[in-house]
Design a protein around this nucleic acid. Structure first.
Lengths: 197, 197
DNA sequence: TGTACAGATTAACAAAAGATAATTAACGCT
DNA sequence: AGCGTTAATTATCTTTTGTTAATCTGTACA
């Protein structure tokens, strides 16, 4: 399910867990492959899955009344995601999640997975780690909206994930940054012509 | 420490916990009172506390090089908070947390509290609940930056916490919304003059 | 009552972003 | 090579926001 260097990475990260523990966790997960463009979670679904991306890229978007799509989330390899409307608020998803590339996922039923994690205190630290990690991600993104302007947010995104620009069309990045594609195009021009002037 | 209706609220929320369990949790917490204006966590502190607000209002802000303050977080009664730089990233706080009103807190050492929670699986659900709640809050805020413009964000804030406007100066609300106080003032004028036109 | 101070509003102008449409670029397909 | 489709850029114009500074308002306090 996971290759050996990932496994040893996680074993090192969670010293209280051994190979058997990891195996127990992965036993409730199954692999799923998506082709580029394929919808993983459609709007209004109640998908209680926790999903790990082995390879590829998932985009979640909101469809506005006027037909425009607004990207609300991008996740790539080695990241977790879930339909947060469903998991956090117990509501049908307002968003559609789909693959931007051919993607390999490892998915588990959220409630089953949590049950396994909650049964033995030895998993507590690992669970906290992931939840706090997700919380940290989310807080950092929030912070960049408060502290940075669109141009700075774009530069920060490039810095965090340089190849994102090759993998995701700019128009999707733009709405994720809270601006329009036209505006992002102008920002890119500003940056390339006179960075610092 | 907590009044009886709060206690029965939490007992009802977490059916697997009894009064004694709650008492065990609260035994690691202590009450602290802050006067209006008092600093709770100064910049660069490494404060590993998890804090519950019984009464009052806490604001966290970032101080820019030019001396301007940018509000990054507001928490009020019945909400939890922590220095997220310290707890999530194990770094000194870039922000200062202070009381906007006379405030009564219930604070616990984060690591001790987690240890208690992690010792017995019966606390798992409660812990998940709080972490997922914080994650949900954070995701919702993030979403409003992506999906809404400043005016809509302001209206949403008013809707979520109507009395916030009486309790926090507009200039602090403005920076929390990612705009300047001048711009918020114009938005307020637009709203009051012609709501829908 | 007056004064000092902080916050809010207003004004004036520059910069950036939104909206819409036209143009250009890139890319797959036959 | 040529066609069609989609994304990206550019152009034009409107709206909003940022910036700086002035003015107004309320409030605490001497």
């Amino acid at each position: 399910m996971l290759d050996s260097n990932k496994i040893s990475y996680y074993l090192q990260l969670f010293k209280e867990l051994d190979l058997e523990d990891l195996f127990r966790l992965f036993s409730v997960a199954r692999e799923k492959k998506l082709s580029i463009g394929e919808v993983y979670i459609p709007v209004n679904a109640n998908t209680r899955k926790l999903t790990y991306i082995k390879e590829g890229l998932i985009r979640a978007f909101h469809l506005k009344e006027n037909g425009e799509e607004v990207t609300v989330l991008l996740r790539w390899e080695d990241q977790f995601f879930a339909s947060y409307d469903t998991i956090l608020f117990d509501k049908p998803s307002r968003f559609s999640y789909h693959a931007m590339e051919d993607t390999i996922l490892l998915e588990a039923d959220y409630d089953v997975f949590m049950e396994v994690l909650n049964k033995d205190p030895k998993f507590s630290k690992a669970k906290d780690f992931f939840l706090l990690n997700m919380l940290g991600d989310s807080m950092m993104s929030l912070e960049s909206f408060i502290l940075l302007n669109p141009e700075e947010r774009y530069l920060k995104l490039l810095q965090e994930k340089p190849n994102i620009i090759q993998r995701v069309p700019n128009k999707y990045l733009a709405t994720l940054l809270g601006i329009t594609p036209v505006s992002l195009s102008r920002i890119r021009k500003r940056i390339s012509s006179g960075p610092k002037r």
